[in-house]
Amino acid sequence: KLPPGWEKRMFRSNGTVYYFNHITNASQFERPSG
């Protein structure tokens, strides 16, 4: 389970998975720990 605010997303163009935090508007490719 991801830390609060984080969700898994995917770029439609190339299928790359990334993680987005809707609380802080942060995004990263590494899976957030917590």
Results as ranks from 00 to 15, higher is better:
residue 14 N to L: 08
residue 6 W to L: 01
residue 17 V to R: 03
residue 12 R to D: 15
residue 2 L to D: 15
residue 17 V to K: 07
residue 26 A to D: 11
residue 23 I to N: 07
residue 8 K to M: 14
residue 12 R to G: 15
residue 19 Y to Q: 00
residue 1 K to D: 14
residue 16 T to S: 14
residue 9 R to D: 04
residue 19 Y to R: 00
residue 4 P to A: 09
residue 17 V to I: 13
residue 33 S to P: 12
residue 6 W to K: 02
residue 11 F to S: 15
residue 29 F to T: 10
residue 8 K to W: 02
residue 28 Q to M: 03
residue 30 E to W: 05
residue 16 T to W: 13
residue 29 F to Y: 10
residue 8 K to G: 04
residue 23 I to Y: 12
residue 34 G to A: 12
residue 6 W to P: 01
residue 24 T to Q: 05
residue 28 Q to D: 00
residue 22 H to I: 15
residue 18 Y to H: 05
residue 23 I to A: 08
residue 16 T to V: 14
residue 31 R to E: 10
residue 31 R to T: 08
residue 6 W to Q: 01
residue 1 K to V: 14
residue 17 V to M: 07
residue 19 Y to E: 03
residue 1 K to P: 14
residue 11 F to A: 10
residue 32 P to A: 02
residue 32 P to G: 03
residue 20 F to Y: 14
residue 9 R to K: 10
residue 15 G to V: 00
residue 2 L to S: 02
residue 8 K to N: 02
residue 5 G to N: 05
residue 31 R to I: 13
residue 5 G to L: 02
residue 20 F to W: 10
residue 23 I to G: 04
residue 14 N to D: 13
residue 13 S to H: 12
residue 2 L to Y: 01
residue 14 N to H: 08
residue 11 F to R: 13
residue 2 L to M: 06
residue 21 N to H: 05
residue 27 S to P: 00
residue 22 H to P: 09
residue 6 W to R: 01
residue 18 Y to T: 00
residue 32 P to T: 02
residue 2 L to V: 08
residue 2 L to F: 03
residue 11 F to D: 15
residue 7 E to G: 07
residue 22 H to T: 15
residue 19 Y to K: 00
residue 15 G to Y: 00
residue 21 N to R: 00
residue 5 G to A: 03
residue 13 S to N: 10
residue 8 K to E: 11
residue 24 T to R: 03
residue 8 K to F: 05
residue 33 S to V: 13
residue 6 W to A: 01
residue 18 Y to P: 03
residue 21 N to W: 04
residue 34 G to K: 09
residue 4 P to G: 03
residue 26 A to Q: 15
residue 13 S to L: 08
residue 30 E to I: 05
residue 25 N to D: 07
residue 30 E to K: 03
residue 7 E to P: 01
residue 22 H to A: 11
residue 4 P to R: 06
residue 9 R to F: 05
residue 20 F to A: 04
residue 4 P to F: 09
residue 34 G to W: 15
residue 23 I to R: 04
residue 15 G to M: 06
residue 12 R to I: 13
residue 2 L to T: 02
